[in-house]
Design a protein around this nucleic acid. Structure first.
Lengths: 194, 194
DNA sequence: ACCGTAAGAGAACGTTCGTTTTCGAGAATA
DNA sequence: TATTCTCGAAAACGAACGTTCTCTTACGGT
């Protein structure tokens, strides 16, 4: 019982932390705000996360896992390898359309703390590496050459920041259009020089 | 004389502010650090910039103008419209290769403060809009369709963040490769469906 | 019923930060 | 020379933050 309760308390803290950290930026959110939002007293909060840094890292790691899980789950609703690769951008479009979308939490935290916190920089890098590996699998399954992975990564990353700053989900469509063209070109095996 | 001196004092403050704000993140840099780095006493600093917010905005606006100017200057060393468009990515490669490269200052400041400061959000948006307009001109000059602009923007933006987090300038090359393919496809006027 | 313990609410502490004020020295003016 | 003004160095102030501590209450075991 105790452990179950502790588990849910931890989840409540992380839920509050994620909403606040992502929505306002990490440094603008104090531990008091997390206490208020989660309803968990400071004492217990510090028993579970002994410092704000540890809470930040836990927030990022949980978001990392869930983000990739949600993406993979969406992609899994498609069968054709080509459609699975392009479905990534449909999922991005849904994400960008959420009313409180504010860019990629890892890009944001890297820009905010990456220069001073090696831990945050490492988690952001690990997240982007994992995303790249996932795309690499989709690209390989679509019988496309490896180098297409790097290009698709750039389109996805660019769409995240452009959608955030412009406040529109359209970049996901533009990225999908570009990815479709690149995929088709790759399939055609065109090799020329400009 | 007074105005000239004030001018150089303002520049010294902005030079220090830019290095610190860009290198460490805005919120991690205190006014004391800027005083120390610039050698300008706090009193005078507050005479020229009446608040940290105003200094932040001045930093972003000056960086915006200089960034686009430097890019255009580099692009202007090429003649062929196609090469001019692709030269953007060569310039990005040079930028990413600087030892203290830490991503796009506007993406970073947007992630850090965009949720709370409308001014910062607006400046970031204006900067990206200006960048997009510049690329649109290059795309039009290369006789490519308008929609290529959106795709090239995404490649460039994606390269900035991927280079920052991965710590490598290679994303600039990958973006250039993709842009070349998209440009060629656009020129060929291929219109098909997947 | 009694005692020990845990736990919540919030005060308190020490530090940092943005901003203002003070103080003292030096230059310009009458 | 006496006085006013300017300006740099640094102290000071008020708020906010991360973290710890205190006090009170309520519950569990005997």
């Amino acid at each position: 019982m105790i452990e179950v309760e502790l588990e849910t308390t931890e989840q409540r803290i992380l839920d509050a932390a994620e909403e606040l950290f992502y929505g306002q930026g990490i440094q603008l959110v104090g531990m008091d705000a997390i206490r208020t939002a989660s309803g968990v007293p400071l004492k217990r909060l510090y028993q579970i996360f002994p410092s704000k840094n540890s809470l930040v890292e836990a927030y990022l790691k949980r978001r990392d896992a869930r983000w990739l899980h949600d993406l993979a789950q969406y992609v899994d609703s498609y069968d054709s390898p080509t459609q699975r690769m392009l479905a990534v951008f449909d999922w991005l479009f849904l994400w960008f359309s959420e009313p409180d979308y504010r860019g990629c939490g890892f890009i944001n935290s890297f820009g905010e703390l990456g220069a001073t916190s090696q831990a945050v920089a490492d988690i952001a890098k690990a997240h982007k590496d994992a995303f790249r590996r996932y795309l690499a699998d989709l690209v390989a399954a679509a019988d496309a050459p490896t180098w297409l992975t790097d290009q698709v990564v750039l389109l996805a990353e660019g769409a995240m920041t452009t959608a955030a700053i412009s406040g529109s989900p359209e970049p996901a469509r533009h990225a999908k259009d570009a990815a479709r063209i690149l995929l088709r070109t790759a399939h055609a095996g065109v090799v020329t020089a400009v």
